[in-house]
Design a protein around this nucleic acid. Sequence first.
DNA 1: CATGGTCGTGAC
DNA 2: GTCACGAC
Length: 796
Amino acid sequence: MDKENRIVVLIDMDCFYCQVEEKLNPELKGKPIAVVQYNPWKGGGIIAVNYVARARGVTRHMRGDEAKAKCPDIQLPSVPCQRGKADITKYRDAGKEVAKVLQRFTPLMERASIDEAYLDITMTVQERLQNININTVTSEMTPNCFALGYNSMADFVSDVHGCGEDMDFDHEHATRLLVGALVVSEIRAAVYNETGYRCSAGIAHNKILAKLVCGMNKPDKQTVLPKHSVNTLYQTLPVKKVKHLGGKFGDTVCALLRIKHMAELQQFSEKDLQAKFDEKNGSWLYNIARGIDTEAVQARYNPKSIGCCKQFRGKSALRDLHSLIRWLKDLGEEIDDRLEKDALENNRSPRQMVVSYSVEVDRDISSSRSYNFSTDDDLCGELFSSKALELVLDGMEGSKYEDGESNRQLKYPIKFLGISVGKFEDHSESKKTKKIKDYFAAGPSKEVQCDSKEPKEVFTKIEKNTSSKSGKDEIMRKFLQKCESKDLKDDRINPRSESNYKPHLESLLDKQESFFAKFLNKENIEGGLNQSPASSRGQNNVTNSSEEAEITTEEVKVAGGVDTCKDDSNDTYCSGSTIEEEINKSIALFKEDADGVDRVSKMRQLLSSTGKENDIQTVETKESHQDEQPHYSKEECIECSECRKMIAMDALDVHSDYHLALKLRDEYRQQARNEIKEKSILKEVVDRDTKKKKPTETTKPQTILSITNFLTKVDTTVPTKICSECGKRIANDKFMEHLDYHEAQKLSRQINKKVANIVSKTTSSSGSSIKRKRKSESPTKKPKVPCKSINSFFKS
DNA sequence: CATGGTCGTGAC
DNA sequence: GTCACGAC
């Protein structure tokens, strides 16, 4: 398929922060709410408004108090504060939860922000087209769907069926868009069923258009833009509504060309536009004026950088060294927290950090400095904050100013501070492919020495779950074969290829995202989808979008009853015990294996077999079923008592392991939370070079082992006992091991408690030095003066 | 005093 | 390597 006619979807969560709050606190459901940030001053700034509140005239740009005045019964949940900063972890996690669902439908997903993602479903549509008769598709199969240029979806459908008397009507593309709309209906239903969140979607031939129409019908709706409707749309579409044209560039375009609407852009030749703007922008404008945008959807799940920042407006500007240090410390710690979590989830760590800041000298001067980590840098909060301080002071050359010993004033007040890290590198060194190969090339022997932990664990899990059907070698050989012959994508899509190969690949994909993403992106750039001629990387003017922008007044429709079954993993991440890491990994894996593979189709089948209609449309024709993976009839499934999901019986034990792991993790997190102590004092940073670190963690390996064992699959044919500790069914021969696990757990709990006690006793003035026992923390080693001492910036 | 905190990108 | 911009 050529690059102009892909089927691209933008999924945008409706007032996402509000939905998250509603899910967390069901009492809010149905009420007008707005999420605020920093409530002290005038009720806080509103960053999201739900549709009930919008109907009452509440908008963003209002303070909490104004909202209260407009709508007295409005609820104003507040973004939690940590370290004096808004903490959006909740929403990030919720966003990931959604992305995880989306990812199942195509490997080509680009996460555009916390609540938006682009999906290239060209292949999915192609596949579906081969399995259905387009004439059996009706508009009822795509509820809440609009087709631009049509009065109703039904009109569009009949146009597709009737092939259209209109000469301009591009039947083939319209057909694919219709199927795309069908798929998107399923995607949105899956998102709702599995997360409880409502979203809207735009379906078009490229990102720009998908984004454009996504916002035209909200909330909980989708809009498809047929090719031939672009012109109609453009007639009245203000230039500034188009992505990339919403800012200064858009303004100059309008001013220079004296135009207002997109349609007017079409009168200019490409050369014209290139002359007025530059070559690239000229071409881009010329194309987008015709609804053409060839920018590919990048396969990217993880953010490329992780950062945090804060403004210090007005009087709160930082004027002395004390506050500078303190804020850098907080920022550094937040980075640290998030990095720790990221490392766990994605097996990577950053190679660079950037600190940016702005000072008010006359106007606001902003600048940024970067630092590349060296291999022996101990990546931790202290490193970040002290390095940042060094860089800031370095950059403020001459502006620093001392005023006696105790209170060093900065010459210019700091209005903004930010630390971010990026240039991530996989822990498994770019040798990942080689390692995978090595591991599987080593043959059936289970004992392959893997020096680093990550690949092995991942693959043993995968192996475990596939062993009944085919060996790891089988699977991996196929996988590598496909990689090498570059056929991989076709096989993923083509339902007729190895039928039990696809789901495993998918769970593999999930864990090895960066590897796979790279592969896909490469493919994409080199050949486009389906071997189109090599392209010169198209124009790029990309920006990114987030959360919930325009407050449009529309018909009110509240997100309805959220089913509460979720195996929700709302991590508020705390200190990282190794046990928790293990549990986390297990959860991640179980998630896929236990219920992740193709739940939608299973549910669809279940629903259609019981005749019970829900949100899910039973759209598939019979032949499309034949290729679906593990085919579970109702009798083969059982409802999980934990989450009420229907689980295949032969997967139930794995599934309940998953819940157990979740519980374990929560338990550990709770403990960790208890350990958290209040903010530390700048003293800590100041005397960082004299501080000694404590050797912690000595008994880990054993603990890991027993837990891992504990989480292994239990064969149902083997005699079992019920464990009195956890109530779980344990195979007899694993029972001792299992008890060991509980022992280890108790032990570690005790240890943690002791630590917590020590901390709380000494916490009165400077207690936080124990608080974070980082994995990377090496016993006594303090790297060879990685940072200058603060004093070196000030003569005494 | 007053949307704030994150992201990604391209130009220089 | 820095900066401004764009999105929300």
